[in-house]
Each structure stands twice: as C-alpha cells, then as structure tokens.
Measured scan of single mutants.
Amino acid sequence: NQASVVANQLIPINVALTLVMMRSEVVTPVGIPAEDIPRLVSMQVNRAVPLGTTLMPDMVKGYA
C-alpha cells in the first residue's frame, strides 16, 4: 500500500509547510503520495489541517 502525507501537527492556513509538519502513513482514502513531501515544503494549505489529517491535493495551494 502506498503511504500518504499526513499532518504531524495542526497546520495553520497561510503558513509555509516544513518537513516537521508532515509524516508518511498508509491511510484510507489515499492522499498526496509520501514521495511528494519534498515538493510540498514551502507550499501552503488553503484551510487549517488538524493533526492526523491526510493531506489531499485540493488542500495545498499550487499542488494540483
């Protein structure tokens, strides 16, 4: 099963993503693939993302 990107903490809106904010985990439904974590660094989410939430492509500005 493919690992997805999961919030490692509350990720506020309009804050640049850092490695420490994200972890990889096998979850259902599948979200952004874990291998895209380096690409996500410095991008921003378009809504607050609670701890443990799977990041979906539509949550990250400029990802999709």
Rank of each mutant, 00 (worst) to 15 (best):
G31I: 02
G52N: 15
N14M: 06
V5G: 02
T18W: 03
S4K: 01
E35M: 08
Q9Y: 08
M43N: 05
I37T: 09
P57I: 05
I11V: 07
M59K: 00
A7H: 02
A34H: 14
V41I: 14
V6T: 06
V41F: 05
Q2Y: 14
N1I: 15
N46H: 11
L10M: 14
P33T: 06
N1A: 14
V45L: 14
M56A: 08
N1Q: 15
N8L: 05
G62P: 05
N14Y: 06
I13Q: 14
V49Y: 02
D58P: 06
M22N: 00
S4F: 02
P50A: 08
V27F: 02
S24T: 14
V20S: 14
Q44R: 12
V6P: 01
A7W: 03
T54D: 02
V26E: 15
V5N: 02
P29F: 03
Q9D: 10
S24W: 08
R39T: 10
A34M: 07
L55C: 03
L17A: 00
G31S: 01
Q44L: 11
A48T: 15
L40V: 06
G62K: 08
Q9C: 06
L55I: 14
G31W: 02
S4H: 01
P57D: 06
P38C: 09
L19P: 13
R23G: 07
I32F: 02
D58C: 13
I13H: 15
M22E: 02
L40Q: 00
A64G: 14
V15N: 08
S4L: 01
M21W: 03
L40F: 01
N8W: 03
I13T: 14
V30S: 10
L55F: 13
A64L: 12
V30L: 14
P12W: 04
V20N: 15
R23Y: 07
M56I: 07
G52W: 04
T53F: 08
P57R: 07
P57Y: 08
K61Y: 08
L55G: 01
Q2E: 15
L51E: 14
G31A: 03
I32P: 00
T28R: 04
G31C: 03
L51R: 10
L17C: 03
L10Q: 13
R39H: 08
S42C: 15
I11R: 01
P57A: 08
D58S: 13
M59Y: 09
P12S: 14
A3H: 10
A7E: 02
I37D: 01
I13S: 12
M21K: 00
V49N: 02
L51T: 12
A7F: 02
S24Q: 12
N46G: 10
V41Q: 06
M56P: 01
V20L: 11
A34C: 09
Y63K: 04
M56C: 05
P57T: 06
L51M: 15
T53V: 15
T18G: 05
V5I: 12
L17G: 01
G62A: 11
S42A: 11
G62I: 04
R39I: 08
V30W: 08
R47H: 13
P57N: 05
Q44H: 13
Q9T: 14
D36N: 11
S24P: 11
G62Q: 12
S42K: 09
N14D: 15
L55A: 02
V5C: 06
D58H: 12
T28E: 15
P50F: 06
L17D: 02
M21I: 03
P50S: 07
I11M: 06
A48Q: 12
V45W: 00
E25F: 05
T54F: 03
V30G: 10
T28C: 13
V6N: 02
L19R: 11
I37R: 09
D36H: 15
V27M: 07
A3P: 10
I13Y: 15
S4D: 01
R39N: 14
P38H: 13
L40G: 00
S42L: 10
T18H: 06
P50W: 04
A64I: 14
L19M: 13
V27Q: 04
N8I: 05
T54E: 01
G31T: 02
P29A: 04
S4T: 04
P12F: 03
Y63V: 04
Q2P: 14
A3F: 07
M22H: 00
A7R: 01
V60M: 06
V20K: 10
I32E: 00
V26N: 15
Q2L: 13
V6E: 01
V26M: 08
K61D: 11
V15M: 14
V30D: 12
G52Q: 03
A48G: 07
P29W: 03
I11E: 00
G52I: 03
Q44A: 13
L17P: 02
P38N: 13
G52L: 03
A64D: 12
V15I: 15
P29L: 05
P38I: 10
L51V: 11
P50Q: 09
M22V: 07
N14H: 13
R47N: 11
T28L: 07
R47Q: 14
I11G: 01
N14G: 12
M21C: 04
S4N: 00
G62F: 09
M22Q: 00
M56W: 04
A7G: 02
P57M: 05
R39E: 05
V27N: 03
V15S: 13
G62M: 08
D58A: 09
A7Q: 01
K61I: 14
D36R: 05
Q2H: 12
I32V: 08
D36M: 10
Y63C: 04
A16F: 09
L51A: 09
K61E: 12
L40I: 14
A48R: 12
V49C: 06
P57C: 07
T28V: 14
P38L: 10
L17F: 02
Y63N: 04
T53L: 09
D36F: 13
M56Q: 12
V15G: 09
S24R: 07
V15L: 06
V41S: 02
V49L: 13
K61R: 13
L40R: 00
A34Q: 06
M21N: 07
A34D: 08
V45F: 02
M59V: 06
A34N: 05
D58I: 09
P29Y: 03
S42W: 09
A16D: 12
N46Q: 13
A48I: 13
A48N: 10
P12E: 12
Q44K: 11
A3G: 09
T53H: 15
R23M: 05
P38Y: 09
M21G: 02
P57W: 06
P29T: 05
V45S: 07
L55W: 02
E25P: 00
V41D: 02
P50G: 08
V6I: 15
V26G: 04
Y63E: 04
P33R: 07
P33H: 09
V26A: 10
R39V: 12
A7K: 02
T54L: 04
I11A: 01
I13N: 11
Q9L: 13
D58T: 08
V27K: 06
S42Q: 12
A7L: 03
M22A: 01
V15E: 15
L40K: 00
P50V: 06
M56D: 04
V6M: 04
Q2W: 10
P50C: 07
P29I: 06
M59L: 06
P57Q: 08
V49P: 01
P38M: 09
N14C: 09
L55S: 01
R39P: 02
Q44P: 13
V5A: 11
A16Y: 10
L10E: 13
A7Y: 02
G31F: 03
N8D: 12
R47V: 14
P57L: 04
S4A: 03
T53S: 09
T53W: 10
L17W: 00
P38K: 12
V20R: 12
R23C: 05
Y63F: 11
P29H: 05
T28A: 09
G31M: 02
M56T: 13
A16L: 09
Q44C: 11
A64K: 15
A48Y: 08
P12R: 07
Q2T: 14
Y63W: 15
L55K: 02
S4R: 02
V49G: 01
A64C: 15
E25A: 13
Q44N: 12
K61S: 14
S24A: 14
S4Q: 01
V60S: 02
T53N: 08
V60N: 02
R39W: 07
V49W: 03
A3R: 06
M21D: 04
I37E: 01
P29D: 07
T54P: 06
S4Y: 03
M56V: 07
M22W: 03
D58M: 09
M43I: 04
S4P: 01
Y63L: 08
K61M: 12
V20M: 14
E35G: 10
A3D: 08
V30H: 11
T54S: 04
L40M: 08
L51D: 12
T28S: 13
Q44M: 14
T18M: 07
A3Y: 12
T28H: 09
K61T: 15
E25R: 05
V26L: 11
V15K: 11
M21S: 05
P29C: 05
V49T: 05
N14S: 09
P33E: 04
E25M: 08
R23D: 05
A48D: 15
E35H: 10
N1E: 15
N46P: 02
M22G: 01
Y63T: 03
